[in-house]
Amino acid sequence: MFRSLIIIAISITLTNPAFAFVKLDGYFIAEKACEAYQSKNRQTNPGNIVVRPDMAYRMLGINKKGGDYFQVHVDDAPVTDSRWVSSSCGIHVVEADTLTSGADDDANDDVVIDQTGTESTDNLLTLSWQPAFCETRPGKKECRDLNDGHLPHTTRQLSIHGLWPQPKGNDYCGVPTAIRNLDNPDNWHRLPAPQIDTETADALEAAMPGFASFLHHHEWIKHGTCYFGEGGADEYYDDTLYLTALINDSAVGDLFFNNVGKEITGAEIRAAFDSSFGSGSGERVLIKCKSDSGRTLINEIWISLGGTISPESDLGDLMRAAESTGMGCKRGLVDPAGLQ
């Protein structure tokens, strides 16, 4: 149940003109360009300020209960930054634990996120070795399932962490502040769900064990919103699944599968990429390790990619189009399932 961010439509029915200003919390998300007035009655607008579609503005209140003008905060507006905007110009995002009249429990799916931009051509694919991840997070649902033997496929292949448009810090594109503030692991289930079809969701649940903890919500909100593929979240995750399958079906996947419980080197991982995807591809792979009880565990591999990703993309070409990177961890254990 998503009860912290609720999209509500404020009724514009005028019932009693004697009602006074009503303070509101949360944010106003503009759905179209509208003037932001200093005085709604005289319709004065110093600076000719206009709210921008899909932008979030801090909500101050409404002119009266059931009124027809929101008062919102507009940064750097001259004379006053408290401006009046017609309620027909957007929607109200409320942060609360109780429902406001007219709200929809499941309205998180209707949150407006601006997806106007050019598709990312500088990306980082991050894949995890799930047993190593679960050594230090045994309480997470996906880790309880893995350690109880219910996710055997996670011990045979690399798992999806995410696909991150670069450079670092390029995240939360068009995401309202109220939603961004919810993005921590305890609240991932309350984030808007990515709009993906059933086939993609089923494949993602298998390839991304963190799906059980709503990792796919977080990855879409933080990183996917900056991918700007024409197909939105569905394209973002289909591209991620496509690349991950290529790696797991290659000599790289074989290297991990055949060495569970043994040490492998960063050089061996890079050589497996060269063998499968062409000379030079391994130089675009960074190996991440973690320490656990005196052991060095291979935790993730980060693959740098350049160019537009599509279902026909050659992974080797994408890798060689990216800048080379350091190796990172030089040697580590391919951790078996279960707490060691």
Rank of each mutant, 00 (worst) to 15 (best):
E95N: 15
C89K: 06
V285E: 12
A96V: 04
A251T: 01
T244P: 10
E283P: 07
R42I: 05
D238V: 03
R144F: 06
Y69P: 10
T155Y: 06
C289W: 05
P167W: 03
L333N: 06
K141V: 01
T126L: 08
T200F: 07
D317P: 00
P17I: 02
V22N: 13
I6W: 09
A233P: 12
A103L: 04
K64V: 00
P131K: 13
K32T: 14
S275D: 12
K32M: 15
I91G: 10
R156P: 07
N299P: 05
N248S: 12
S324T: 15
R284Q: 10
V94Y: 13
N108P: 06
G231K: 14
R137D: 09
A9R: 07
R295Q: 07
D105V: 13
C89Y: 04
C173R: 01
I10R: 11
N170M: 01
L60D: 08
R270F: 02
Q195N: 15
L255G: 12
D25G: 13
T100L: 13
T198L: 12
W220N: 03
D148V: 01
L339W: 05
I179F: 00
L305V: 04
R320I: 04
L5T: 02
G253W: 08
D238Q: 15
Q166T: 00
Y37M: 09
I10Y: 13
W302H: 13
T200K: 12
S276L: 00
A178T: 05
D105H: 08
G210L: 00
R270T: 02
A207G: 11
A206E: 02
R190A: 09
L318P: 05
Q38F: 14
A207E: 00
S88G: 12
D97H: 11
P176I: 01
I113K: 08
S276V: 01
I196H: 10
H92G: 01
M59I: 00
G117A: 02
